[in-house]
């Protein structure tokens, strides 16, 4: 009987597919779909490729348009200078330092946000304590207060605490996240009550439950959020601009901005391009590396 049922459903599936083919997922429309996708990929990828091409030419070549479409022969010179020579414009800080600063900030923000939001969602969903809903709404309301809105008071607080030009100053104000807390709250609420109770009967206290059951079930969500938050942290502009004065605390995005001067001739475009490549690379790597998890986390929930 079970076999018959399987056969039937397979037949139904086949039927559906044939129907799909008939209903216009024809050869032609498939070509059109591909063409659109290819155009899309080109639009996204070409500027990145062109940045890379520019980073391998000398300043003279760049300043004399048109810029060739193929990489030039200054790859090693440019990258060596950017990494170890120190870039003139921003006070002799190498790209290495900039990358390190940005990585610390992006990782700090991503991990910090995740830790804080997972813990607060855990408290809000699984514990009954006085003021639970009050705290939930307070967190919710902070959605309306992104960094840009509260930037002056936050800056004042950082100055008073002496956190200007420190990693803490870079990371801390960006760490609290209502969005992530709400996401985890929604996810935690889909965990069946029976599972929580089974764990209680099995003698798992709150921490055991958190560590052995909740976190493994949240794996894909954690990964997806990590990618999003890492890129959020990596691309921060306004806050790092305010809170860092010293050049060796700059993030790569700020450094890029500082390297570009208004007079075209003063700007070392070849080095700007190298720095740009370095600025884009880590987010791309994170996405590529976590892609599988990322897509899983957005698409499916394992329960």
């Amino acid at each position: 009987m079970a076999e018959a049922a399987t056969q039937q459903s397979t037949a139904a599936a086949l039927g559906r597919r044939e129907q799909g083919a008939m209903l216009g997922i024809s050869r032609r429309s498939r070509y059109i779909a591909h063409a659109i996708l290819i155009v899309g990929v080109f639009i996204v990828a070409f500027p990145i490729y062109y940045t890379f091409v520019a980073s391998t030419h000398s300043l003279q070549t760049i300043l004399r348009p048109p810029l060739p479409l193929l990489p030039g022969e200054h790859f090693f010179d440019n990258y060596y200078e950017a990494l170890f020579g120190g870039v003139g414009r921003i006070g002799g800080v190498g790209v290495g330092t900039l990358l390190f600063n940005t990585t610390v900030m992006a990782l700090g923000i991503a991990i910090g946000k995740i830790v804080i939001s997972v813990l607060s969602a855990f408290a809000i969903v699984f514990f009954r304590f006085p003021g639970r809903m009050f705290f939930f709404w307070v967190i919710f309301i902070t959605l309306m207060l992104p960094v840009e809105v509260r930037i002056l008071p936050t800056y004042k607080v950082m100055v008073d605490l002496g956190l200007i030009d420190s990693y803490t100053g870079l990371i801390l104000p960006l760490m609290a996240s209502a969005t992530a807390t709400l996401l985890f709250r929604q996810f935690f609420m889909t965990i069946p009550g029976e599972l929580v109770e089974a764990a209680r009967v099995d003698g798992a206290g709150p921490w055991r439950f958190f560590k052995d059951i909740l976190m493994p079930l949240s794996k894909t969500n954690l990964a997806a959020l990590f990618v999003i938050m890492f890129i959020y942290g990596w691309t921060q502009y306004l806050w790092p601009l305010l809170v860092t004065n010293s050049n060796d605390m700059n993030t790569i995005v700020i450094a890029l901005r500082k390297m570009i001067s208004f007079a075209d001739a003063d700007t070392e475009w070849h080095l700007v391009m190298v720095t740009s490549v370095f600025a884009i690379l880590p987010p791309i790597l994170v996405v590529l590396f976590m892609q599988r998890w990322f897509v899983k986390g957005l698409v499916e929930t394992e329960k």
Partner: peptide
């Protein structure tokens, strides 16, 4: 005590 739940409540992972 040990309990058997209606939806089994096995740990999925």
């Amino acid at each position: 005590i040990a309990m058997v739940f209606q939806n089994y409540a096995l740990y999925p992972h």
